[in-house]
Write a protein that binds this DNA or RNA. Structure first.
Lengths: 193, 193
DNA sequence: AGGGTTGATTAGACCGGTCGTCTAGTTTCT
DNA sequence: AGAAACTAGACGACCGGTCTAATCAACCCT
């Protein structure tokens, strides 16, 4: 009784994520998402209260997966903290360079949604907070194991995340990876000094 | 014969800028902008070809003013290059802290518009490029006059701008100035070392 | 100087698509 | 077999951008 429910719901979330990652939130109608998902419109309001609540669920789902990936990577025992972190940034660059369509929903939706819907804004706020604190935790690990120079972990984590968000935005505008490469180079300098 | 034309056009641009800076591009209708401006709907297509072309004009107007301000500030003879730059970041922080409504259209519209409209994307790309290159130029001035340590001006300018874009985005999501303060502190460190 | 002509400007009708609702039908599990 | 979960998709009210026809202002020419 739950399986089918969750499947359809999840399917709609994933389809929507792809479409919305490309076109934004407001400019995409439910119709487009639902026909793409092969789910009739009527079902939608069985699973979600409104488009806004759907958007929030979509972001929650996105962050859940993102953070799970992050945890998997950051827990890699074989690598030093510094290497794990380097891998994270490299992945960010690769992912964005591969698809022109945006992957990072924070960059894509952050500006648009922040003043549009409080629940969605809060989800984004909490999700980014989680990401930054995980980076900070890894930095601390790296500082204790000596693979990263002694910095203020919390402040550095925030700075780096900010830098990469901005770089992603510029990369989107330019349709080039160069801003991300710049960010990568700077990050390397900062963490190796 | 031109004055009234330009006045109306400019008025619609400015009104739209305020509204769009708050709500985004796609989720605002022409109706809302036009009634706010007191301009009848029919007039719109006399001045602009489409909503998209209007958006582009709006961004061009925005950057023209932004860059004019920047030039005025960066030309201040009384201050060292380092001080002029510090003033720029401080202003950025103050502006965003003052109004919850976004001022920076790059942060607000960048993600949304990049995949929506090529002309708008290009305008944003060129505008941000101009900003970065002006920062780079000022950095060079500061390096030669000794008020700024010898860095790669172009790369540093880009890094700093990216950092501040990301900080603005996080500040928007959190509705707090803290991310911007973090960026400011980091910027100070970087430029004073 | 004044009527007619031209172009700038306005008004609002128009079509298509939006979100969200609602009732009828189907599936699934007990 | 019956009850609950889920699906189907038509529907309404509304709003989006666009376009055509009417209005207005300025200028020219006789």
């Amino acid at each position: 009784m739950k399986t089918r429910h969750d499947n359809t719901r999840q399917h709609v979330l994933e389809t929507g994520q792809r479409i919305i990652a490309g076109k934004g939130f407001a400019s995409v109608g439910l119709n487009e998402i639902l026909t793409a998902a092969g789910v009739p419109k009527g079902s939608f309001y069985h699973y979600f209260e409104s488009k806004e609540q759907y958007g929030q669920a979509l972001l929650e789902d996105y962050f859940a997966r993102y953070l799970a990936d992050l945890d998997a990577l950051f827990a890699a025992e074989a690598l030093s903290a510094q290497e794990r972190l380097a891998c994270y940034w490299q992945r960010w660059l690769d992912k964005q360079a591969a698809c022109a369509e945006q992957q990072c929903l924070v960059v894509k939706l952050g500006g648009e949604v922040a003043d549009l819907s409080d629940p969605m804004r809060e989800t984004l706020r909490d999700g980014t907070g989680q990401i930054v604190s995980r980076i900070a935790r890894l930095l601390e690990t790296g500082i204790t194991d000596g693979s990263i120079p002694p910095l203020d972990a919390a402040a550095t984590a925030q700075t780096l995340y900010q830098l990469w968000l901005g770089a992603s935005l510029l990369a989107k505008l330019q349709r080039q990876a160069q801003p991300l490469e710049n960010a990568l180079q700077f990050t390397r300098q900062l963490l190796s000094r």
